[in-house]
């Protein structure tokens, strides 16, 4: 059986993993390579890195970190933040990343999804999206951009469909409402998108306990889920989450 993936997410700033409080009061969590090796050995199915200040500082993504991670871990990983062009995507992929993730860039220039998919294959192109609850939208959720700061007026479900038509091979649904709450994933929009598109959907934002993963896989039909704070702090391990999933009957990779 195809297993449900658990993906630790690391926000990287100037070569260090930081606590995901965007743009302010960042707390140093450690070295991205060391943390990657730890997570890979500990059962992570994939990794994702966001260079959280690259866009704001208008500089390209830190390729040195990408290459060092690729040399040290032998599982797939995605990289986002600071990608402004197909040339940037190419640098990241040639450095050893399996996937590149775009968010605000795709909102401003949707054609980047098509161009990226044509050059690298759609399996390499991840669309990150940050929907926020808004009852006025047809699906009940509006897309935000630039780290939640900008409301776009775009319907989240509409955007997901269009992005897949253009070339996105996977969608990370990061709920603005759930992000940082540790009270569980936002099930409704995750489920709507998972059922509407023919590519894998990754749930993101709100994980606080192993049970939250069981819920998002069983009730929202996500293909994968992102974990951050609850494992970065050492409160839980990937294995804690996976044992819980396995006991709930969810196909889980336990042999690592």
């Amino acid at each position: 059986m195809l297993t449900k993936r658990i993906i630790p997410c690391m926000d990287v700033m100037r070569g260090r993993v930081t606590k995901g409080v965007r743009f302010a009061n960042n707390i140093d969590l450690g070295d991205p390579v060391e943390m990657s090796v730890g997570y890979s050995d500990g059962g992570a199915d994939e990794l994702v890195f966001y260079d959280i200040t690259a866009s704001a500082e208008k500089r390209p993504i830190d390729i040195g970190v990408v290459g060092a991670v690729a040399a040290a871990v032998h599982i797939p990983f995605a990289v986002g933040g600071g990608i402004a062009s197909v040339a940037d995507m190419e640098r990241v992929i040639l450095a050893g990343a399996e996937k590149v993730s775009v968010n605000s860039l795709a909102i401003e220039n949707p054609e980047i999804l098509k161009e990226g998919a044509q050059v690298f294959g759609r399996q390499c192109i991840v669309l990150g999206m940050d929907p926020v609850r808004n009852e006025k939208m047809p699906c009940g959720y509006e897309i935000t951009a630039r780290g939640f700061r900008v409301r776009t007026g775009m319907d989240a479900l509409e955007w997901a469909r269009r992005a897949v038509d253009l070339g996105a091979g996977e969608i990370v649904v990061n709920s603005v409402d759930a992000d940082g709450t540790r009270e569980g994933f936002e099930l409704e929009i995750t489920r709507k998108i998972a059922h509407a598109v023919g590519v894998p959907v990754v749930a993101s934002g709100g994980a606080g306990r192993p049970g939250h993963f069981v819920t998002v896989f069983l009730e929202a039909d996500a293909d994968a889920a992102i974990v951050a704070g609850m494992v970065h702090t050492g409160e839980y391990t990937i294995t804690d989450i996976k044992r819980f999933m396995q006991s709930a009957g969810i196909p889980t990779r336990m042999d690592y």
Binding site: M1, L2, T3, D45, P76, R122, Q123, G169, E170, G198
Partner: peptide, 25 residues
């Protein structure tokens, strides 16, 4: 079932080898 088949799936050998998961795309 989404296509591409992406993620970790098990490979079952035809001998005594145990089935193990590997990454597919």
């Amino acid at each position: 079932f989404k296509v591409p088949h992406m993620g970790w799936n098990s490979v079952t050998g035809n001998g005594e080898r145990e089935s193990r998961e590997y990454y597919f795309v």
